[in-house]
Computed example of a mutant assay.
Amino acid sequence: MTQYIICFNEHWVGDHREEWFIRRGPLAKAVVEEMKNAGVYVFAGGLDEDIDKAFSADTTSGTLEVTDGPFAVTEEFLGGLTIVDVAGDEAAKMWAGKVAEACGWPQEVRRIG
């Protein structure tokens, strides 16, 4: 079995009314339940949308520096993630498709190495 991250950037979500997001919640929860029942679920969660609450830790200078904000200054940032433990790429793609359909926005899939 191999672990994969299924994730999305916050800017992929798009602008939607609150009612739209409320309708997506049960769909996403159902996919998580399906993953658990299939024995592939490791973890899933959305990240705090307030990027100003992020901080970074960096030791490349030889000294630990912890700073407010994301490490890279960018308009794109991770919005949420799911970790699955599956047999291979095809299974990871299948689960990513289910997550994308439930959430209503694209997902990126990468093997955890």
Rank of each mutant, 00 (worst) to 15 (best):
67 T>S: 06
56 S>K: 02
67 T>G: 08
99 V>T: 13
56 S>W: 01
8 F>N: 08
53 K>P: 10
84 V>F: 07
81 L>C: 10
18 E>F: 14
40 V>Y: 12
72 A>K: 13
2 T>Q: 11
17 R>P: 14
93 K>S: 05
15 D>M: 05
99 V>A: 15
31 V>S: 11
46 G>N: 14
33 E>P: 00
55 F>A: 02
15 D>K: 07
43 F>P: 06
33 E>L: 01
109 V>S: 08
97 G>I: 04
98 K>M: 11
7 C>F: 04
90 E>K: 12
73 V>K: 14
101 E>F: 01
66 V>Y: 03
109 V>H: 11
99 V>E: 15
3 Q>M: 10
110 R>C: 06
34 E>L: 03
18 E>P: 14
22 I>W: 08
107 Q>F: 02
95 W>D: 05
104 G>Y: 01
72 A>M: 15
6 I>R: 13
96 A>W: 13
23 R>L: 07
76 E>Q: 06
59 T>C: 04
66 V>W: 05
28 A>W: 15
61 S>V: 03
47 L>I: 14
94 M>E: 12
95 W>N: 06
68 D>F: 00
24 R>K: 15
15 D>P: 02
67 T>W: 02
58 D>A: 01
107 Q>D: 04
23 R>I: 06
71 F>G: 00
66 V>I: 15
70 P>F: 15
77 F>K: 06
1 M>S: 04
57 A>N: 06
66 V>R: 13
33 E>Y: 01
99 V>N: 13
62 G>S: 02
51 I>P: 02
9 N>L: 13
79 G>W: 09
36 K>P: 09
4 Y>F: 14
92 A>T: 04
112 I>M: 05
11 H>M: 08
99 V>K: 05
68 D>R: 07
90 E>T: 08
8 F>Y: 11
101 E>L: 03
73 V>A: 15
73 V>H: 14
85 D>I: 00
93 K>H: 01
41 Y>Q: 11
10 E>M: 15
57 A>E: 03
20 W>N: 05
113 G>Q: 11
31 V>W: 09
52 D>W: 00
48 D>P: 03
45 G>H: 07
111 R>D: 09
64 L>K: 04
86 V>E: 14
75 E>L: 05
49 E>H: 02
17 R>S: 13
13 V>N: 01
28 A>R: 14
